[in-house]
Design a binder for these strands. Sequence first.
DNA 1: GTCTATAGAGGGATAGAC
DNA 2: GTCTATCCCTCTATAGAC
Lengths: 206, 206
Amino acid sequence: MSDSPGPVRTLRGRNRITSDDPADAGMDARSRIQQVALELFIEVGYDKTSLREIAEKLGVTKAALYYHFPTKEDIVNSLIQDRITVVAELLEWARDRPRTAEMRLEFVRRYSEGLHRGNRHDYVMRFFERNQTVVNTLAAGEAMRDQLAKVVDVLADPDEPAAVRLRRSLAIFAVHAGHFILRDREPDDQKRIEAALEVAEDLLGD
Amino acid sequence: MSDSPGPVRTLRGRNRITSDDPADAGMDARSRIQQVALELFIEVGYDKTSLREIAEKLGVTKAALYYHFPTKEDIVNSLIQDRITVVAELLEWARDRPRTAEMRLEFVRRYSEGLHRGNRHDYVMRFFERNQTVVNTLAAGEAMRDQLAKVVDVLADPDEPAAVRLRRSLAIFAVHAGHFILRDREPDDQKRIEAALEVAEDLLGD
DNA sequence: GTCTATAGAGGGATAGAC
DNA sequence: GTCTATCCCTCTATAGAC
């Protein structure tokens, strides 16, 4: 809830998650907070990440954070909001299209594209899966859950057999997980994404 | 670490996770604590579950818990320990067997069996996936991660192409997730397990 | 084996100066 | 926009009686 005061949302094209240090000029305060918080939320966990820790890593004090985000939850919500918007657009695209095999394929490709092109959406999803219990207590988290269910429903009719539904659900999961599961063996980002898509398309077929 | 004082480990055959109330005679104190804690850890999350809450649900006080488990972490560790043992045995079984297609199939079947027959192992795994960031700070959690990697390595040679590796990894995930993903559409436990196995076997083929 | 009471630490959030 | 200082709360864990 609430998108708070603070400066206007800039959200520059940024993919890497390595704002280890002050080399991060080029980002406004709000973005830098989001970035550092997201890293910590993924690695240490949302609950175990204190505002003090975030502030320290940014070289400011806790109180400074409160100027940009009224609560800790608001940091998460701001992160999730972008992602929700993008998926909502994709669902809108799919809305009245007939559920053909080609349509489903195109749907997954667009899904993958939105996940990897946009701003750190892959890391937002990683946060989501690594902090499931936290996310369930958030309104924005509930929204994401609903969307995910709708995405799955695009890929498989709710009254298809259980095995088919599961198989198609895994297509989405392949797109999500591929990026991280393969990280150690396949260093090339693009190659990983393509491999994941290959598996996903395979799962959609009969 | 540490398996603490407390009574001897009994761990009766028990599958349901519904110890809502004192209808849970038949379990010793230690098991009842594990049961209630596991439920809360899954639903509310490990961090947000306080010992007070666990104690309240059991109708005792916090201090009583400390008699059975020296720390909060020890509850988790005791839960995970069984699971680690079972998977270790399965990996031992697989150790020197040739990696044929039949062997992989049998491996996954045994994996599924150990997951659903044993004592609430499916819920332990659900705890694992829903509290990933917490589990990573635990020694026992690290052990589970290692085992999972080894399980995947049984199904796919580390130097096979990325897409193949991902596909096979998903076989294990299907077994894990199927049970929960399909819960709303397919009420029959056994049917869900079979559907998941069907998908898993499919993913192992070429 | 369970209780009451409390120590001791750390967290989120606010007040108000600059 | 950032700071210092502080409030207030909850949590884990321990001490010691019964």
